[in-house]
């Protein structure tokens, strides 16, 4: 069935493969070029500060607001995020926090009448 699905959509195997190849090349080049070409230490204080803050900014932008739509029902999501927030504040590791967020959301979803 699945093998014929692309065919029924009118897309040839060759164009699927070519499309994926183009996606892969562009994605890889974006990641590889700065890492390979840029080997010096950056001297600009501003740029270095910018790059140091960047990971936290990227994470915050990815988390808010997307996290609020991630865990199924809103009560389950909020419960999972609240537990994860408190655990994070007290510096528990990445894996315990991630596991707790999922477990709490899953348990909360099972409470009848909430979701």
């Amino acid at each position: 069935m699945n093998q014929n699905a692309a065919l029924s959509a009118g897309i040839s195997t060759a164009s699927v493969l070519l499309g994926i190849a183009v996606m892969a090349v562009v994605t890889y080049l974006m990641r590889m070029l700065p890492l390979v070409l840029f080997r010096r230490r950056i001297r600009s204080v501003w740029l270095r500060s910018f790059l140091a803050y960047l990971p936290y900014a990227v994470l915050a932008a990815m988390t808010v607001p997307a996290a609020f739509f991630a865990g199924g029902s809103l009560p389950a999501t909020l419960a999972g995020l609240a537990v994860a927030g408190v655990m994070s504040w007290f510096r528990m590791g990445l894996f315990p926090v991630a596991a707790a967020a999922s477990t709490v959301a899953c348990l909360f979803s099972l409470i009848p009448g909430l979701s």
């Binding site: 988390t63 999972g80 994860a84 927030g85 510096r91 926090v97 999922s102």
Partner: peptide, 25 residues
Amino acid sequence: PAVVRSALGLAIYGMFLAIILPEAR
């Protein structure tokens, strides 16, 4: 089950919080 699937989706955001909050504190 959809419940498990969406609960798993929350794991990654829990991890993000565990990275951001201690540093922000």
